[in-house]
Design a binder for these strands. Structure first.
Lengths: 340, 340
DNA sequence: TTGTATGCGTTATCAA
DNA sequence: TTGATAACGCATACAA
């Protein structure tokens, strides 16, 4: 029922080797034969068997290198699980995965880790790139020779095989729409963001603003506070925000620092009074959804981010196929108490 | 780096055949050798290569039969896409898929199709079982010899390899919570369900009721109308519901018939006034979310239902591995305008 | 009770 | 420019 190289060889009256050369454009075949074989192949609807292919390329012993900022950041726990799952899946292909875990976002440190991976002879790299020029340059450089995937955070200046993550603008819009639906008429919302220098955080604000301006004009944005993803800072700026804007009825956290922010909320006895929307599902966020303090959290598929990143690279290594689109946006997930 | 049968054979000083016999418990091996080889294998962390395995079992030419009620029911469009995707994925394994599309839910018709598939020599079957005794009996019967997967709708009386679908009770709870969050204080909701005989529909009502009774006691359920998933009936019962309960502020559709129901809503100029929550994302529902008539729709991953069902069966055929749990619940997806 | 040969579909390395 | 052969890891039929 299925058509193989041997079958085509038989029908064309040549050897399998010749068919292979034609089908994979290796040259050194008489043009007339080329055409004849190609015709027969397309006519029969030849589709190479990926399994058999993989079994052969297995000998190449590919190695994928990963840099993940998972130390001290629970968001990446699930990303790591996805990476491990993909790692298990592709081990049959003889592809190995080397993971470097790191804490925080230091460009020089990231640069060093990239060099370490290269020294280890990796054939591909996946990482959450820091938006700085030296990183962009480095990635541009190495992506000449090996495929690079950016996950979770994009770096538009650098050439790469793919970006795997969420559509920040869209998730901001969704947050805005949810906020619009759960708030009563006159509503003032305070925004607590990670960093105004982070592209993703800003896009989440943009999308949010876009929706409430166009569809929920009775919602006002009181202020935007920056917490640099730090809990203590978050506590302080949230406190200040609440003091400066007594009429606030809702909070919108675009990034981390939710624990600190909620501490300020609780101190002022505003839990269960303010509507609160956050991103991701860290343990702190989960428990506060359980308690009814947070109304919604919007998740960006951490597990799939990890899994997909590795899978995209292994697919590329094993069959040379790049993903259809450079930007692989994973659907967001709206979570509340009953589907947490 | 990776450990193979040959490597184990070499280290044990026996042939590959013997190792194979031990590792797959085929017997006919001296007990002492058994133990020795098993020890070496576990010590080295032997993991059989699924690719190579599949390449061999490929010769068996497995055939999976599918019965899908997709004719005239757009919900199953995406299920079909998932099935097609899985079909492409497993073609490398030499597993073929035969799909029988049918309109409506007639038990005798379903029975006939099962027999047709069996006559065609299928090695596995996936279907959306109708909850009637003759079907349950039939499935119990054939699941003695081949694996059976129920997708989208479960049939608890019948033995099967797995059920693939959503947790209806949980999605009902989510609907209830969403309703609670978007409605103002005194709220009366009308429920339009498919059939009170359908297990899934009832569970969606139960979950909904459970949440509003425990957490949103200011919401009242006015009435429950049955539309048998028929548009015209749906129009009529919704109209009646709205006439009988002038104070209704929200509608909850647990199943199909949304188009007819909304026609009644629009006729009475209640669009954009009533809060409306539905399930799935048929074209009609999509367009009404766009228009702002429907607030939320809760999707049950139709694509994944199709994909997973086929994948579970092929995994079982190729490696004899049953899924970890009989009930494979796919996460629900909350959709509104901005993430449709 | 054990070992050997053959094949799954592909690629790679020879030799012709 | 072509063809034959070995190999990837496993399973099976057959031989010893």
């Amino acid at each position: 029922l299925s058509v193989t190289i041997s079958k085509i060889a038989e029908l064309s009256g040549v050897s399998r080797g010749t068919v292979d050369r034609v089908l994979n454009n290796r040259g050194n075949v008489k043009p007339e034969l080329q055409e004849k074989i190609k015709n027969i192949a397309t006519e029969l609807g030849y589709k190479p068997n990926a399994l058999a292919k993989a079994l052969v390329t297995r000998k190449k012993k590919y190695l994928i290198g990963i840099i993940i900022n998972s130390v001290g950041n629970h968001f990446f726990d699930d990303v790591l699980l996805g990476i491990e799952a993909a790692k298990a899946d592709i081990s049959d292909y003889g592809i190995h995965v080397m993971i470097k875990k790191v804490k925080g976002y230091n460009a020089q440190k990231q640069l060093d880790l990239i060099d370490e991976l290269l020294a280890d002879g990796v054939n591909a790299i996946a990482l959450t790139p820091i938006n700085e020029d030296i990183i962009a340059q480095k990635l541009n450089d190495i992506s000449q020779s090996i495929p690079v995937v950016a996950f979770n955070n994009d770096i538009e200046q650098a050439h790469k095989l793919a970006f795997v993550g969420c559509d920040y603008y869209k998730s901001g819009k969704t947050a805005g729409e949810l906020m619009g639906k759960i708030t009563e008429d006159p509503c003032t919302v305070g925004i607590i963001t990670g960093s105004l220098k982070m592209l993703g955080h800003n896009k989440r604000i943009e999308g949010f603003r876009e929706i409430i301006e166009s569809e929920y004009s009775d919602i006002q944005i009181a202020d935007i506070a920056e917490n640099n993803d730090d809990e203590q800072t978050s506590y302080e700026v949230t406190q200040q925000l609440l003091i400066n804007n007594r009429d606030i009825t809702a909070l919108y956290f675009t990034a981390g620092g939710v624990e600190g922010g909620l501490r300020a909320v609780c101190e002022r006895n505003l839990a269960h009074k303010l509507k609160i929307i956050t991103f991701d599902a860290t343990p702190v966020i989960r428990s506060n959804i359980e308690k009814g303090v947070i109304d919604f959290t919007i998740c960006q598929r951490p597990y799939l981010q990890g899994y997909t990143s590795v899978k995209v690279l292994s697919d590329y290594l094993v069959s040379g196929i790049a993903p259809k689109t450079e930007n692989i946006y994973l659907d967001i997930e709206i979570k509340l108490k009953s589907n947490l």
